[in-house]
């Protein structure tokens, strides 16, 4: 059934998907600041420049804190919802599902804009709080979905078995359900972390003076400078992602949850 021209389409697809990464990689080692192609010479200066640029270093820490915090909060709050959706059938389950998937349906830029107006401009909230709320909201749907998927893989009767053997509902959940959801929770964590860490649209409006996420500060750097520093930083981020995703895939089978 698979014919040769179909393989050609595969080559084109991967060339298109991965080609830009190859180019960024090459550009990050080129000595020429104007990034004429092909790059001339070899240097690691641009990588050094990344670490010397305080704008990047500061925003990296902010992105890291933000991603960890919002991922954890969205997981803790999403877990009971996922549990209710998977384990019970109830009339309002459609409504609950819609409400919790809504943050995916609304464009990120609009979410950021609406939250800026409501929380920061109207409610005088600190910028970091606004960012935290925005990121937690957009991670909700992922947390609920991934945890639901991992709960669905677990026989619902194991909880009843634990209870029939003398455990109360809470102990049954802690001793039997939670240990079997480890992979799902970890997968949700990795996915949530990456989603938050890479987000631009929501952060764009919510970033304020001194409080900027890494992708947003990359974007604003590019408005003023066009040199391989961004390429070097991108190479670092890709390497970081590859390690994270490959580890997660190897250990957890991440792709079944995406």
């Amino acid at each position: 059934m698979v014919s040769r021209w179909m393989y050609i389409s595969l080559v084109i697809l991967y060339g298109f998907l991965l080609g830009p990464f190859v180019i960024i990689f090459m550009a990050s080692f080129g000595a020429n600041a104007t990034m004429a192609f092909p790059p001339q010479g070899f240097t690691l200066d641009w990588f050094a420049r990344v670490f010397e640029t305080s704008q990047f270093v500061d925003s990296f820490w902010i992105s890291l804190q933000l991603a960890l915090l919002s991922t954890i909060v969205s997981l803790v709050m999403g877990m009971p919802v996922a549990y209710a959706l998977v384990r019970f059938q109830f009339a309002a389950s459609g409504l609950v599902e819609t409400v919790f998937s809504a943050p995916i349906l609304v464009p990120g830029l609009v979410i950021g804009f609406a939250m800026l107006n409501f929380f920061v401009l109207l409610g005088k909230m600190p910028v970091m709080t606004g960012l935290f709320i925005g990121h937690t909201a957009i991670l909700f749907p992922y947390s609920v979905r991934v945890i639901s998927a991992s709960l669905r893989n677990l026989d619902p009767y194991v909880e009843d078995a634990a209870v029939s053997l003398g455990a109360n509902r809470l102990r049954g959940f802690l001793l039997v359900v939670l240990p079997n959801m480890q992979a799902g929770i970890a997968a949700a964590f990795v996915l949530g972390f990456i989603t938050s860490f890479n987000n631009v649209p929501v952060s764009l409006f919510l970033s304020g003076p001194g409080v900027t996420t890494l992708p947003v500060s990359m974007l604003s750097y590019m408005e003023y400078y066009f040199d391989p520093t961004i390429a070097a930083l991108s190479t670092l981020l890709v390497a970081f992602t590859v390690v994270l995703v490959q580890t997660a895939e190897r250990v957890l089978g991440l792709s079944q949850f995406v």
Binding site: L17, L18, T34, M35, F197, V200, A231, S234
Partner: peptide, 29 residues
């Protein structure tokens, strides 16, 4: 191969779009 499809999805859009500046720029590829 699927993990190679997912990889770009997990990389930030700024980095991925930056490549096009190198490819399509005045002195680009």
């Amino acid at each position: 191969l699927m993990s190679l499809v997912i990889l770009p999805l997990m990389t930030n859009a700024v980095a991925r779009t930056f490549a096009w500046l190198i490819i399509l720029g005045r002195r680009g590829m």
